[in-house]
Amino acid sequence: MTPSEILRSAAAAGVKPDLAQLIAAIPYACYLGITVDRKGTEVTTVLKFQPHLVGNVGLQALHGGVVGGFLETTAMMQVIFEVGAAEMPKPVDINIDYLRSGRAVDTYGRAVITKQGRRVVNVHAEAWQEEHDRPIAALHGHFLLPAEK
């Protein structure tokens, strides 16, 4: 199933979409190696370290674009999970703060919806590695919801 089919069938059934199935339907998320770990209402994204994610060989640091793409995906999953849109939300703008260099280990992400409007959702997401209180990057951004029909 495509992401839209997954979202529409969940919306029609009145249930939360299966985020693991959804992420598996996004080629770029699979290419980066992103998975979703859902425990009740808590959604955590996981970026498994792989050599092709490195942006600086000397430092063995993750590429800034990988961290950005991971955080954007994390924010998007939270919007889909909480708002339950029947189409994929569209990013309007994102701000990424790079706080520490991302090392050659697994990375985790979580997002919080700061404000949900009728058409636009404001989201804050954070990525961390071994220590949750030492984030490697943070994102805040706006996502546009599909127009109500």
Binding site: H63, G64, G65, G68, G69, E72
Partner: peptide, 9 residues
């Protein structure tokens, strides 16, 4: 393409 590709570029 995913926004992350544009971010990387």
């Amino acid at each position: 393409v995913h926004g992350g590709v544009i971010t990387s570029l």
